[in-house]
Computed example of a mutant assay.
Amino acid sequence: MTSARSPGGRERQRPAPVRPRDAASVMLLDREGERVRVLMGKRHSAHVFMPDLYVFPGGRRDAGDHRISFGSDLHPSVLHALKTAGTRQLTDARARALALAGLRELYEEAGIAVGQPAPSAAAPVPFLPDLAKLRYMARAITPPGHARRFDTRFFALFANEAGIDPTRFLDSRELQDLQWIDVNDSPSLRIPDITAIILADLRSSLDSDPSLPCERAVPLYAPRRGRLVRTLL
């Protein structure tokens, strides 16, 4: 807490600034039809952060995510970008934990497991996450003034590359009304501003190269002097 003087001269307590927490989100893409579609769902109305808005599956990085065993590692270019894209360099374990958090959240929020079954029932998730097909697409930091702030890394994953059946997903307590949205349409759903920006970036990337190569410049959206500034990392 910080203090400031009230008009009467007495000190009053100001709430401490909310620091962004690491988070990850996965844009699961279905390209089997004529158009590419992305999976989105509505956040529960009880959420403090972005209630009733449609988003990609995702959430904050948990302390135990770096201990999740995985089946295959990130592409070297993706791991490098996660480690170096920012003001401080991350360790391999912390960078990898961001991707593991994204796949864990995809499973918890949509019932989609990306990887082979885990050999032990005591594993944190019932599968060995396959990180190799993840593309690192963007990073966005929630501006000040929100009750929750996140430093979110956005990943893209093609369902057919990961062996995912696009008809098999489940609503959860976290994310409801899951549905496939054509990335080329302006969604009629209520979505956060940053989600609309990331969708526009995704469209541009697909137009440039539909394979979404792992070697790519990653846009960072960060608050600066009251506005969101885009920087390529």
Rank of each mutant, 00 (worst) to 15 (best):
A46Q: 03
E215G: 00
R35T: 11
P124W: 13
R60Y: 05
M137E: 15
R190C: 04
F150P: 08
D193N: 04
N160H: 14
D52C: 13
R19Q: 13
A101D: 12
S45F: 05
L170K: 06
F154M: 05
T142S: 01
P223D: 01
R168N: 07
V114H: 05
V229T: 14
F70P: 13
R227M: 15
F158Y: 02
R135G: 15
G86A: 02
N160P: 01
S208D: 14
P57M: 05
A122W: 15
R149I: 05
E174Y: 07
A121G: 13
L39T: 09
N184G: 02
K42Q: 02
V18C: 08
P210N: 00
A122T: 14
A217G: 09
P219F: 08
C214I: 03
G226W: 08
G115E: 01
G111C: 05
M27N: 00
E32R: 15
G111I: 12
A85K: 04
Q116P: 04
A122C: 04
D171Y: 08
P17I: 11
A162Y: 06
L170A: 02
F155A: 10
I181C: 01
P192K: 12
A147L: 09
P124V: 07
A123V: 01
R19D: 12
R43T: 09
L79T: 12
S204H: 14
R19I: 15
R190L: 13
L202N: 00
A93L: 06
V55L: 14
A95R: 12
P7I: 07
D207Q: 13
G86L: 02
L206N: 10
Q176G: 00
D182F: 09
T231F: 03
P210I: 03
D22H: 11
K42P: 00
I198E: 03
M1H: 11
A147G: 13
R216A: 06
T84F: 12
I181V: 09
